[in-house]
Write a protein that binds this DNA or RNA. Sequence first.
DNA 1: AGACACCATAGGTATTTATCTATGACTGTA
DNA 2: TACAGTCATAGATAAATACCTATGGTGTCT
Lengths: 323, 323
Amino acid sequence: MVSTMKIRQLTFRLLQVYADVVRTGSITATANRLHLTQPTVSQQLKRLREIVGEPIVRQEKGRIVPTEVGQALYQLSQDLLSRADVFSQYLEEYNRGGRGHFSIGLVNTAQYVLPRLLGPFSQANPQVDVTVEIGNRQQMLNRFERHEDDIYVFSHPPSDDDVLAAPFLSNPLVVVGPEKCHWANVKDLSMEALKDERFLLREPGSATRHTFDAWLYSAGIELTSTQQIASNEAIRLAVASNMGLAVLSRYVVADSPKGVQELTLTGFPLKSRWHFVVRRERRLPPAAYRFLSFAEGSLTQAFDEPEGSLAVAELLEALKGAR
Amino acid sequence: MVSTMKIRQLTFRLLQVYADVVRTGSITATANRLHLTQPTVSQQLKRLREIVGEPIVRQEKGRIVPTEVGQALYQLSQDLLSRADVFSQYLEEYNRGGRGHFSIGLVNTAQYVLPRLLGPFSQANPQVDVTVEIGNRQQMLNRFERHEDDIYVFSHPPSDDDVLAAPFLSNPLVVVGPEKCHWANVKDLSMEALKDERFLLREPGSATRHTFDAWLYSAGIELTSTQQIASNEAIRLAVASNMGLAVLSRYVVADSPKGVQELTLTGFPLKSRWHFVVRRERRLPPAAYRFLSFAEGSLTQAFDEPEGSLAVAELLEALKGAR
DNA sequence: AGACACCATAGGTATTTATCTATGACTGTA
DNA sequence: TACAGTCATAGATAAATACCTATGGTGTCT
């Protein structure tokens, strides 16, 4: 006898129509407002009544007024509809990229420059929450393989099939020595002259190392003494402690130049560039898309030597199709 | 491009299914739990995704996990479903009569006795809110005609076609005089002896008046002096002030006997009864039904001379059909 | 490497829904 | 009392929904 509401059949459409009927107090009026015919609205009400299992409106002096149950139902409708609406707005915001989350994976060196983009972006999009993953090249490649992040920053983009990469900033690699290094005063210094110095190098997988190695090879130079150190920071400190020289991203040095200085060398800085890397296949969260778009627009303000803002624009274009 | 959710097609059923999928992390599991097949659930998810316009789940290590949007949707689902559930519970409570509202219309005399039923009822059903309307017979008849209340209490039920009436309490009409009335000491007092006293009477429409008039008529007695006063209270006060005698419900006197006393008269008290009156056609609010049912059960405790508890039971039975 | 879960898709069907037009009943006002 | 307006009901239909069975792909675990 006491049957609860048949909630399975309840539609938001029904609630919409019902709420409007209660508001207007007229079936005909609602029909007009919602571009339906009067019998349609009548029938919707009937169906809703059946779902609820209880009369929800009655006629009183020509107006439609909700019964007691009807009033409760009206409140419910308002409540549910407005909540759904909030969600809908969230969705819109999400799609616009102004809200949501994305993650970006950086190789170590890039961590020195990305904040200049991420900072202003977060400022401008407080509702977007960004996860920044940092690791050496190999670690990032692993994450990339597992599709763990939305955007990556590499110097040498992996060559996967569906990879899209756009250079956005040049990453000059410079030779650094300790603060009071006598090489600093030598004119027309060349690498040849330094080849017997001890060089502190990143691990072979890293882009910095790879670029340097390749350059040495093409220049036909072989270093006599090297030492491998896993982090840029550690290398910088080691150089400051007179443990040797190193090749580092200029941004690493610029960031905290204490105890080290850049040496001016013929042929240096070595050219290298950071790329935004995304998978063509992956449906980028709108927030991630928005970030790339933001980055493209602010490269010139954020950096002295931006590079490839056009390439980023192209990447965005390529992604648009996949949305 | 940025299309909001197609809310019109959103069903609570879909949300139910979706919420369960998120909870179990498995489409198959949900299918089993909800007694559906796996493809059915798959398809529901797909439909929901189309409504939302955005992927809501993805597979991750064999488990189904919600996307960012999916998580928001899940929260929404929980929220909406639980709210609908609260309403459903309200409905149940309402149907059980333990919650809600009804109104009861009383003729004046009945106001002295109904509190003995309404009090305990409200105590037992704090969520039920009762409107008590009080007026003279004519006023109540008007309200009755306009279907303004759910239950009425009359001594003489109106004879409408779809009226259902059940006597529930005898309403003895007694002759009252002032506190130090010499008639009080007379043995075997008869109305005949009092016929030259001044009688203070209610208006002709009232049941008390009508019963008394009828009795006088059948006894062949004609009063020599009468005065019409519209309220029982006023009559009682007038009697206490030695303005005359009166015929009143014993309950009126019992309620506040100051300054008056009941006279023992042959043939008195006159018999009369209060009736619960409802319209057969009217769908009684469950709370009203519950009140009648409560009344039926507590007549014996509430009153010394209950009457017609059986008739009330019958009335309830008759109403059951119309529910 | 297979076997096994698990999910997606295709294809099918009975039911339900969302609408409409036409029409009849009721009601308040002129 | 007649008219105008409002609502309910009936009857019809195209579309959508809620399911199902069968089957094939894919990732997981042993």
